[in-house]
Structures are given as structure tokens and as C-alpha cells.
Amino acid sequence: MFSLSGPLIGRYIALVAAILIVPYLVMQPIFGHAGDTSLGLFFGIVAGLLVLQLMFLGIKKSYFVGRFGSHQQWVAMHNYTGAALLLIALMHAGFKVNMNFHGLSMMLMFVLVASGLVGVVAYRFFPSLIIKLRPWFDHDEIIQHLKSQDSTLLARSSKSSIKINHVVWNLVQDTDYRSIKDPFNSSFMKGLMMFKDEHKQMLRLETEINDSDSTLAAANSSDTDEMRRLLKMRDATCRRLLAASLLQYLMGGWRKLHRAISSIFVVLLVVHVVVSFQY
């Protein structure tokens, strides 16, 4: 069982879910499908077992267990099981969501499944997006790239007016390259603030360049064009870094959020079960 590939796991689970739909369609309780009918109870137990299986992924991740298949297989199982849980839970509730405590658990489950879908999309597309946004491999390469852009900008600006030169100098001097951390480990908010400041400086510089254009001799116009081009590149580099950092941050944030929602859901589920059997 544990050597199955992801799609095969999905087909397996879909088959099981499909089989379970049959009794739902065939059997028609007197007062309609609900959680307190025998069929509803049956589906509830199945859903509970699915939840336990879903929880095992968290345990397997935190405490690496080499047996019972690879992590990738368990993630695939987790994803397909989560989707199947939606169907089973709805069949358990007779496709009704009441405005009570039990309904609250159901709604939280919807949120959790939706969060899972977001995760599937994020895991599928974000890494390649991040790579496209920051094609440099490591921190040193990014810094080197920025530094070389800045030194070219500085060289060009030295041929321009003192004012422009001064603004460029401030821009370059204020760039703390050491604080431009690897997006994999950066604080997104810190990066955002840094970008905001830099962007302001760059806008100011652009204004200076535009103002000076009219007063510059024709011979210097190539310098200002080049500076504009460099500024655009610099701006683009910073935006890309920030975007990559944002995506990475979102992925990390999603993991935390999904875990938090799962924990709350498990608690609500336990209460739901206790309350249901009690009353």
C-alpha cells in the first residue's frame, strides 16, 4: 500500500468514496439523512478515522519515521483524504449545515479543506515562481548583482550634476546590503520597509534626473538615459526580491495557519463527538 504513487492513491481513495456514496443514495432514512441515523453514524466514524489519518502526517513530519512510505506519499494521501473527508462529512450531516455548534465544526472543516487546496496550489506553483523572480542562486550573488548595478549608477551619476550625484550617493550609501537577507530566511516586513524607503529615494532621484534633463547639455543626455535605465533595473530587482520574499513568507505563513486551523478543528471535533454522544 505504501509504495503507491500519488495519483494512484487518489484513485484508490476516490473509489472508496464512490463506493460509500452508493449506500447514501440507496438508503433513505425516514426523517432524511442526518448525523444521528445509523448511516450518519457510520459516515461519522469513517470521517473520524480519516481525520486521524490526516493527523498522522503532522506526526510523521515532526518526528521523522522512516517506515510506512515516503513523506511525499503521505502528503499525497493527506491531500486526497482531505478532499474525501469533505464528501464523507457532508454525507454524515446529510448535506445540511445547522447554525449550531456542530455546524460550526462543519464550517471550520470547510475552511480547513479550502486551506488545504490553497496549500496544494502554493506548493505546486510557488517554488517555480520564486525561482523565476529571483534567478540568482544565493545571497552573495544577489548582493553582488545589486552592488555592480549601484557602482555603475554611481559612476554615471558622477558625470551629472552635483545634486544627482548627491542623491545617488545617498541611495547607495543607505543601502545596507547586509540587511538584504536571503528571502528564505528574511523577515518580510523588514524587507517591505526597506523597499519602501529605497523606492522613495529612487523616485526622488528620477525627479532630479527629469528636472536636470532640461538644463543638461546634449552630451550628457546619454548618461541620464543610462541612469534611468539603471534605476528601472534596480527598482525591478528590488521588486522581484520583495515578491519572492512575499511568496516565501506566504508559504511559511500558510503552513502555520493550516496547522493552527487543524488544531482548533481537532478540538472542536472532539467536543462535537462528546456532545453528540452525551445528548
Partner: peptide
Amino acid sequence: CVNQKNGPACVQACPTGA
């Protein structure tokens, strides 16, 4: 992971097969 039955733990643990 020569002493592990299922081979390298890093490969086993990767959720996306990267």
C-alpha cells in the same frame, strides 16, 4: 542512511519530491 531500510531520510522526508 546505509543502516536505514528505506534509504536516504532526506529523500523520504521531502513532501514534494524535490
